[in-house]
């Protein structure tokens, strides 16, 4: 290994040591967790985009993430989202494996209210996660807002998840991970209807991007690799190799 590589590794280790809430939560798909350097990072901002008319799948994916994160959950929702994508159903959440008693629902009229509430809630360190469900692409969601949310999340250790409905993924930075989620067809012929997600990891600050098909186990509360096997794209959009690749090389 060259001196330069060693230096980079040392710097990475130093960075990892000062990372404030470097606790990661395993999602349950081994290769995905490896790409995420151990799992979904707590105390960070994650963004989940719903593919057009796949709002329910994105909702399920976010619900799955919050089950993994644990703790009380605040779900901030625009009124319009309730009409357009349907109201959150407690019975359905319970069937999914998310205890409705953990959930606090806040209905706001506009994105401004949602973001204000989010930055307040992110200071409440006992929360496990804050989900901010936003319709469309409000102007308010700019780089400054992203940075503010990410900072608030980092300070308290509460994970912020932006659930973006009815909009195309944008390239605003500041997020730890960005996903584009759509539903995938059930594979199990007998017992069909289990949640299966086709998740495109478009941005990953601590590793390469990729594309996964995974199912959610409602009983165990973990994601599982779908039977057809994970498809990991080559990290062509990044100049450096992922930590995983380096680890295996070393």
């Amino acid at each position: 290994m060259s001196v330069k590589n060693q230096k980079i590794l040392a710097l990475r280790a130093a960075l990892a040591a000062v990372e404030p809430h470097g606790v990661r939560v395993e999602l349950g798909v081994p290769r995905l967790d490896a790409v995420l350097a151990g799992g979904l990072m707590r105390g960070a901002l994650h963004e989940v985009f719903a593919a057009p008319s796949h709002e329910a799948a994105a909702t399920g994916f976010v619900a799955g993430l919050t089950v993994r994160l644990g703790g009380p959950l605040l779900w901030i929702r625009q009124d319009y989202a309730g009409l357009e994508c349907g109201a959150l159903a407690a019975t359905g959440l319970f069937e999914f494996g998310l205890d409705p008693a953990r959930l606090l629902l806040l209905q706001v009229t506009d994105a401004a209210g949602a973001l204000k509430a989010a930055s307040d809630a992110l200071t409440c360190a006992v929360l496990g996660a804050v989900v901010i469900e936003v319709m469309g692409s409000p102007k308010l969601l700019d780089l400054v807002t992203y940075r503010r949310l990410a900072l608030a999340a980092g300070e308290s250790g509460v994970t912020a998840i932006l659930l973006r409905q009815a909009t195309a993924p944008s390239g605003i930075g500041g997020v730890e991970t960005r996903w584009l989620v759509r539903a995938a067809a059930s594979q199990d012929e007998e017992n069909w209807g289990q949640p299966v997600f086709d998740a495109d990891l478009q941005r990953n600050r601590h590793g390469p991007a990729g594309h996964w098909v995974m199912k959610w186990s409602c009983d165990d509360g973990v994601f599982r690799p779908a039977d057809r096997g994970a498809v990991v794209s080559a990290p062509c959009d990044r100049p450096f190799a992922s930590p995983v690749a380096e680890a295996s090389a070393a």
Binding site: A56, G60, G86, A87, A89, G92, L93, W192, G193, Q194
Partner: peptide
């Protein structure tokens, strides 16, 4: 599989 939907 879940018998009730997530969103109503």
């Amino acid at each position: 599989a879940p018998r009730r939907p997530l969103r109503l």
